[in-house]
């Protein structure tokens, strides 16, 4: 088996899978909790996928590997603005959304086939902020302040 590095996160959000799906993919929502960024994709298998900074530069890019709204999204993902991270190549991001009572269990796995990955180290400090902010946004209609602007510590 190939050695991997990964970031694993599970959070329960009081919302519906449909709303959570929109929040994860639509610019209107991502701008609020994900450092004012927007994603661009046709959201179908094989389609290209990008995260754009507020001034239109590509922060990360890749491809939609699997998509099953509002339950599952798998992306091929590479950082584009830090050369040492870009050099590590493509990672794989899985979002899994499961309805559990009045909440949705969101599982996020971000993995790369490399040990001691700097990319995983970087996302491991960013994701908890962004996902906490996403939860706040959906539950209280207000995201966390530190994740609203680019560039922020949480988005590097």
């Amino acid at each position: 088996m190939m050695k991997k590095d990964q970031f694993v996160y599970v959070t329960y959000i009081r919302t519906t899978p449909e709303k959570l799906w929109k929040a994860l993919t639509e610019p209107e929502f991502t701008r609020q909790f994900w450092c004012n960024t927007a994603q661009e994709s046709e959201w179908k298998p094989g389609a290209s996928w990008k995260i754009l900074t507020p001034d239109g530069r590509v922060a990360d890019s890749g491809e939609v590997l699997e998509i099953e709204p509002p339950r599952r999204l798998v992306l091929k993902w590479r950082n584009e603005f830090r050369p040492e991270l870009k050099a590590e190549g493509y990672s794989r991001l899985t979002y899994q959304l499961e309805k559990e009572g009045k909440s949705v269990k969101l599982t996020v796995i971000h993995e790369i086939e490399k040990e001691g990955s700097k990319f995983i180290e970087a996302v491991s400090s960013g994701w908890p902020h962004i996902l906490a902010s996403l939860k706040s946004l959906l539950e209280t209609s207000e995201s966390l302040e530190e994740t609203r602007e680019w560039p922020q510590e949480a988005c590097k």
């Binding site: 694993v8 996160y9 599970v10 599952r72 899985t94 899994q96 599982t107 796995i109």
Partner: peptide, 9 residues
């Protein structure tokens, strides 16, 4: 107990 996360592939 949330000590394990699982995803389908």
């Amino acid at each position: 107990a949330n000590l394990i996360a699982s995803v389908w592939r």
